[in-house]
Simulated assay, not measured.
Amino acid sequence: MNEIKVTVHGNVVTDPTPRAARNGSVYTTFRVATTPYRRTADGSYADLGTSFYSVIAFDTVAANAAVSVRKGQPVIIEGNLSTKTYTDRDGVSHSSVEVEAHHIGHDLRWGRASFERVSRAAALGADRTADEEVRRSVAALVTAARPAGVDENGEIHDVAVPGPPPPALVGPASGYPDADRRAPAGPAPAGPAADDPDADDPDADRPGFGDPTPGDPETDDYELADAV
């Protein structure tokens, strides 16, 4: 659908009126008057006819305009232009030029304005943190003593627990997985058992056990299998 985009410079002639639609959405309406002036043939400037526009805004633009715009203030409005036709109580048909506002701002050629950023939830009244009671409760929590490990932003950090240091690792901390599970160091066993890994093995003297004697590589495997 083709839509006409317009920018209207004018003065607010009615206070914005916020309303709620049947589906719960918010919209705000007000009227704006604009009087253009042109230079005449003799070099002077003269006002032309005054035009009136009905302005309607939805959602956050509507909520913010309801608390920011007042009657008599100069504004700049950008939106879609359309013509509405209606019939009054006497049965007389009328037409009205309407602007569905997408952007509304004060005209700073004629004065100053301040800006306050708010979230969409806060503008539509759905933000509980915007309530005065909630703000006082949050302020009380900020001024109260914070527990250990919680900073001013409410983030939790690890806190070192006082106590004896952990026991030292057994064996060199070489990075191997079983470095801390090695047996504690002690006196080395004396005698031949210290050098012979099979000294305590009862099957060490049986044929086929212990260190095999080098022999014929073609028959060693078969002899070892027979011995088992």
Score class of each variant (00 low, 15 high):
I4F: 02
I4T: 15
K5V: 09
K5N: 11
K5A: 15
H9W: 08
N11K: 14
V12C: 01
P16D: 05
P18N: 06
P18Q: 12
P18M: 09
R19H: 03
A20M: 04
R22H: 04
T28N: 02
A33L: 05
A33C: 01
A33I: 01
A33S: 11
T34V: 08
P36V: 07
Y37R: 11
Y37Q: 13
Y37P: 04
R38K: 12
R38L: 07
A41F: 11
D42G: 02
D42Q: 12
A46I: 04
D47L: 11
S51M: 06
Y53F: 15
S54Y: 00
I56D: 00
I56L: 02
D59F: 01
V61N: 07
V61E: 03
V61H: 01
A62I: 02
A62D: 06
A63T: 02
N64S: 10
A65W: 00
V67P: 09
V67T: 10
V69A: 01
R70F: 12
K71N: 13
Q73P: 02
V75L: 05
E78P: 01
G79F: 06
G79H: 02
N80R: 14
L81A: 09
L81G: 06
K84A: 09
T87G: 08
D88G: 13
D88V: 05
R89G: 04
D90N: 09
V92C: 05
V92A: 03
V97W: 04
V97I: 15
V99K: 02
V99N: 06
E100N: 12
A101Q: 00
R109P: 00
R112N: 13
R112S: 05
A113Q: 00
F115V: 15
R117N: 03
R120W: 06
A121G: 07
L124I: 04
A126D: 03
R128V: 15
T129W: 08
A130Q: 10
A130V: 08
D131F: 11
E132N: 10
V134Y: 01
R136S: 09
S137Y: 08
A139S: 09
A140C: 01
A140E: 12
A144K: 09
R146M: 09
P147A: 11
G149K: 04
G149C: 14
G149D: 06
G149T: 04
E152W: 07
N153Q: 08
N153S: 14
E155S: 07
D158I: 11
V159E: 11
V161Q: 13
P162Q: 09
G163H: 03
G163R: 03
P166N: 11
V170A: 14
V170N: 10
P172Y: 06
A173P: 12
Y176L: 15
D178E: 15
R181D: 13
R182S: 06
A183F: 08
G186I: 07
P187E: 12
A188W: 13
A188Y: 07
A190E: 15
G191V: 10
A193L: 08
A194P: 07
A199L: 02
D200K: 11
D203S: 10
D203F: 13
P207D: 15
G210N: 07
D211H: 14
T213A: 15
D216F: 00
E218W: 09
T219M: 10
Y222C: 04
Y222F: 07
Y222K: 08
L224E: 00
